[in-house]
Nucleic acid binder design. Structure first.
Lengths: 232, 232
DNA sequence: CTCCAAAGGTATGTCTGCGAGCCATTGGCG
DNA sequence: CGCCAATGGCTCGCAGACATACCTTTGGAG
């Protein structure tokens, strides 16, 4: 029996119970900026269907987010559950997963996504979308930078046309953000980051896969070494 | 709200119930060759702990595998559940997931894994392991080729040192194999495949990331176009 | 030859999560 | 002004999964 591959295949079949997983997903959609502050989440019935859990479980998850001041709910038609304008700082507790693990997977997924996106012929809507996210990220205030940054990176993953790849990037990014929340965000880094973003998007729009990969790799290696520096 | 990213984030939180997921994992460990024919699975109690499910659920999953002639169980000390020497052909039913989806993710993950593995300084044990898997694959009979091939590719993923990446490759590979089971395996393809494997492993052992990526990309693109050809 | 550790086989009570239905609230439309 | 559709709020019974405990079988160690 191949000993080491077992660790991957015989890992736990589920990350947590249905409630915890649901909270995690909703939290991701907020923290990654897929649902922005002030915007409404899909209805409970809708979420229950999409997430494949019961409405009861969705409600418990939403209640948990309410209690932690991430969302607030309003009843009645045109009511719903809305993301609050001011979001609480993420709890600092959490153990760091294996740093190498997280960064390795992120590098593979995101450089691959950039390369793949650059190799496709993108439609006008996709091109506009990428440019819009780039603009958002570059003009965003410090406090909302992480969210806008994630939206840009997710848009790149989406541009590959692979839902599975997009999902993988979203998950890996979430794990990376947990780490990034522990290091300071400085103006110079941000400016540098924006310049790199521009090169990545330009390469993708130009249809230059190799350049897109290189630019993304450089971008990620920057934050990776920042991380390794700050987290011992 | 960013519309398309929702598909990724609001996808179902769990693929199936605990029983189905457990069957899936055990099946993967057999089909990917992590537990070879004649070998013993970990004990029920052990599996229950590792997979994070109850022993009852593990037993139901194993029973299902017994009924489908994948394994047989023996009681008493030094007993256990053993993979049968002759495995049934996989059921042909199954819907094809989105072909583009599966192949895109596989390409990103595996070319990334090859590049990453080549960029690390591997220990003697790892180098021996890679060479052993290569040897196994190249000398394997037609019937067991897919399994040996998967073991080789998993070994490459493991050589990155990232458990998360290994798990992602295992899952993506399983999905790809479901498709590959529907196309014929021919001797010439196999010889070609072995030659490519050799170049991949050589590049990794030589520590040449760019060459490893190129070789892996070529290898995957070969089977990808085979697939696209056969599946409409 | 006996003992016993380790494996599969079985049974039971509890709890989580689900499905389904109904209630309460709200704001636009006719 | 009244209706009503869409939303969140709530309850109850059932099925799946779990933890735990105990039984049975087997073959090596002593």
């Amino acid at each position: 029996m191949v000993e080491h591959a077992q660790e991957a295949l015989f890992r736990p079949v589920r990350a947590g119970n249905a409630f915890e997983e649901t909270v995690e997903r909703l939290m991701q959609s907020i923290r990654l900026g897929v649902v922005a502050p002030g915007e409404r989440l899909p209805s409970e019935r809708d979420l229950a269907t999409r997430l494949g859990v019961s409405r009861v479980t969705v409600r418990e998850a939403i209640r948990s987010l309410q209690e932690n001041h991430y969302v607030e709910s309003r009843r009645g038609r045109y009511g719903g559950t809305f993301v609050r304008e001011v979001l609480p700082k993420s709890a600092p507790g959490k153990e760091f997963g294996d740093l190498h693990d997280v960064l390795t997977l992120r590098r593979v997924l995101e450089t691959g996504a950039a390369e793949t996106a650059a190799g496709r012929s993108l439609g006008p809507a996709e091109r506009r979308g990428l440019r819009a996210r780039l603009e958002e990220a570059s003009t965003s205030a410090l406090v909302e930078y992480r969210r806008k940054d994630s939206r840009l990176h997710l848009a790149i993953a989406e541009a590959t046309g692979s839902a599975a790849l997009t999902a993988a990037v979203a998950e890996s990014r979430m794990r990376a953000n947990e780490l990034l929340d522990h290091i300071p965000l400085l103006e110079p880094n941000l400016a540098h980051s924006n310049a790199q973003h521009e090169r990545i998007i330009a390469s993708i729009l130009d249809g230059d896969p190799a350049a897109a990969r290189r630019a993304m790799a450089e971008h990620l290696d920057g934050t990776a070494s920042l991380l390794r520096g700050f987290l011992v």
